[in-house]
Design a protein around this nucleic acid. Structure first.
Length: 414
RNA sequence: CGGGAGAUGUCAGAGUGGUCGAAUGUGCCGGUCUUGAAAACCGGUGAGGGUAAUACCUCCGGGGGUUCGAAUCCCCCUCUCCCGGCCA
């Protein structure tokens, strides 16, 4: 959630920032009005409550002293009656404010380039040259057919479309990648976790998936529970509603989890192959950082993810997302896009974001700064998306006959 | 899923209708002492909102109710622990 006090006091600036993310200024004006209304009704309610409390105290005193309480009771009853509509109004103001506030995206950083969609993202650098093939490289789904790696039909039978089965060598490759990623993350200082793949609604609100993006989530029937769309949710929310000691920061965490996404609104996109599935494997990094140095942690995470791709000898490029392509919670995001020779395109394989205090405010994650409590900064990034790494290995390591080499660094894992 | 017990500050744990945001211990921070540390002693120390700062408001798992007044009484829910069932 954005800082409402900041919005209140710096409305023009705040509104200009959110314009980058396509938020109408009318929405913000409305939010400002709701905030003001809440403050007013709260002030009124609180003063009435103070009066009520004072009278109740008197009441006890009178009774003890044996004084007549008839008149006081009449006053207290009247005040109580008068308080009801004020209370109701304050409650409504609170609800109205939160409904709007929780749907406002994070402020983008000043450095975020202007732009409407991914066309306007800015390439920062390319890492490694794509190799030249002496033949026309195939797409991963063709290769999977040749090698018998992916069973699309039976995946669909078991669940529905956009579910697939990895078989044999491909399944082993997935396991190898998970281990490789976790090991390399651990060496970088990320503590490894194994977390629940199902989280409750409060946690999903903490990281920003709810209430606005419920349509993208698989919900457990009759329960207040959801399949996680990324390990960012459990890892970040481990510290939901906690106050950390300053010494503990930064907390660096990593976990492998399957991720479940409904992919609402992606109909027709990437329907062939395993680029976009309802369930996919991912190893995620999450950092809970001191607000003074979260940007350094961010750079470190980007470098680290890029380094993993380099170790796999996968050509990729580093891309800064423009305002329009930035996710809901992110102040800044850098994507790593891996080269897919079969598709003849760079495709996203990791996305590293600094959400600053946006998730921390929602999830109430704070740290002790002296004797005051301050919001932490939270960051997350894939290291890496496993399914897409398999695709990248298939396409980049293919031979003319369709067979696939295994990257050197993975050999000891297979 | 069935039976019993419970949910209070970092933790342990008192508190059964008013002066209780909450005893005491512990932890943590600061100080005295010490070459340094430990021990001992002294002081400080829950969270959120509000204010220029005070006032002031809210919070004793969550929601509702009774009452002038609820951590304390009543109802519902959730969770935890123990016993049994089922089970990796």
């Amino acid at each position: 959630m954005i800082d409402l006090k900041y919005l209140q006091n710096n409305f023009v600036e705040a509104s200009a920032k959110l314009q980058k993310k396509g938020v109408e200024s009318a929405t913000l004006e409305n939010l400002q009005i709701l905030f003001k209304r809440l403050k007013e009704s709260n002030a009124k309610l609180e003063s009435m409550k103070a009066e009520q409390n004072a009278m109740s105290k008197l009441f006890g005193q009178y009774k003890k002293e044996g004084k007549d309480i008839g008149e006081l009771k009449a006053k207290v009853d009247a005040n109580k009656e008068a308080m009801l509509p004020v209370q109701e109004k304050a409650r409504e103001a609170q609800e109205a404010l939160y409904e709007v506030a929780l749907a406002i995206p994070n402020f983008p950083d000043e450095s975020v380039p202007e732009g409407a969609n991914e066309e306007d993202n800015v390439e920062l650098r390319k890492v490694l040259e794509p190799r030249s093939f002496g033949f026309k490289p195939k797409e991963h789904w063709e290769l999977s057919q040749i090698n018998g790696w992916i069973d699309f039909e039976r995946g669909v039978k078991l669940a529905k479309s956009r579910f697939a089965i990895l078989k044999g060598e491909a399944s082993r490759l997935e396991r190898a990648l998970i281990n490789f990623f976790l090991d390399i993350n651990r060496k970088k200082g990320f503590e490894e976790y194994s977390v629940p793949f199902i989280n409750n609604a409060m946690m999903l609100q903490g990281t920003g998936q709810l209430p606005k993006f419920g349509d993208d989530l698989f919900k457990i029937e009759d329960e207040d529970l959801y399949l996680i769309p990324t390990a960012e949710v459990p890892l970040t929310n481990m510290y939901n509603d906690e106050i950390l000691s300053e010494k503990a920061l930064p907390l660096l965490m990593t976990a492998y989890t399957p991720c479940f996404r409904k992919e609402a609104g992606s109909a027709g996109r990437d329907t062939r192959g395993i680029i976009r599935q309802h369930q996919f494997s991912k190893v995620e990094m999450v950092a809970i950082a001191h607000p003074d140095n979260s940007e350094e942690v961010f750079e470190m995470m980007v470098e680290h993810a890029s380094d993993i791709l380099s170790q796999l000898k996968l050509p990729h490029r580093v891309v800064e997302l423009c305002g329009g392509d930035l996710g809901f919670s992110a102040a800044r995001t850098i994507d790593l896009e891996v080269w897919l020779p079969g598709q003849n395109k760079y495709r996203e394989i990791s996305s590293v974001s600094n959400t600053r205090d946006f998730q921390a405010r929602r999830a109430k994650i704070r740290f002790k700064d002296g004797n005051k409590n301050r919001l932490v900064h939270t960051l997350n990034g894939s290291a890496l998306a496993v399914g897409r790494t398999i695709v990248a290995i298939m396409e980049n390591y293919q031979n003319e006959d369709g067979t696939i080499e295994i990257p050197e660094v993975l050999k000891r894992y297979m």
